[in-house]
């Protein structure tokens, strides 16, 4: 996968090759690839002259640094108490039906991954979800389906 090598190298050039820059580089890879493949992790280790175990150990600490393949759009629905009270389960159900995958899975065309996440700071406008970096709040079943349909069709 020469593209990943290119990517890691350009990120290392941009941020520097010190340990302190590791998270920047890992975040940069995830931004492009949506997840950290084994190839990417070993490449980062090589560029920064660290052990692959250290890179892997750091990456797996952080929820947003996925080491499993993810879709182009990662949908994270808040599961913490207020969003739970306001009906996040119905939203998840609707998205599962709409995308025909279960929580934790990725669509076959690798476009969507459906996940739960801990409180993301929208408790006053729950239920809430993130699609990549974008936050969607005050969700209803209809609204959630409308949003995801728009992604399916137009993105």
């Amino acid at each position: 996968m020469p593209e990943v090598q290119e990517l890691v190298k350009s990120l290392a050039d941009k941020y520097g090759r010190k340990r302190e820059n590791l998270l920047h580089i890992l975040q940069g890879v995830v931004e492009q690839e949506r997840y950290l493949s084994d190839v990417a992790l070993t490449e980062v280790a090589r560029e920064l002259d660290m052990s692959a175990a250290q890179v892997y150990g750091t990456a797996t600490f952080y929820t947003f640094l996925d080491t499993e393949p993810r879709g182009k759009y990662v949908v994270r629905i808040c599961r913490t108490i207020t969003c739970d009270m306001k009906g996040k389960n119905q939203i998840i159900q609707a998205l599962e039906d709409s995308l025909k995958i279960k929580l934790g899975e990725t669509t076959q065309n690798k476009k969507f991954t459906l996940l739960e996440t801990n409180c993301m700071g929208w408790c006053h406008q729950g239920p809430a979800m993130l699609i990549n970096d974008q936050a969607y709040t005050n969700l209803t079943v209809d609204k959630a389906i409308e949003i995801i349909t728009d992604y399916v069709k137009n993105k």
Binding site: T82, C119, G121, C123, H124
Partner: peptide, 11 residues
């Protein structure tokens, strides 16, 4: 790094 459930004022 405002992560406490129920806090969203820093945002």
């Amino acid at each position: 790094d405002e992560g406490e459930p129920g806090t969203f004022k820093d945002r």
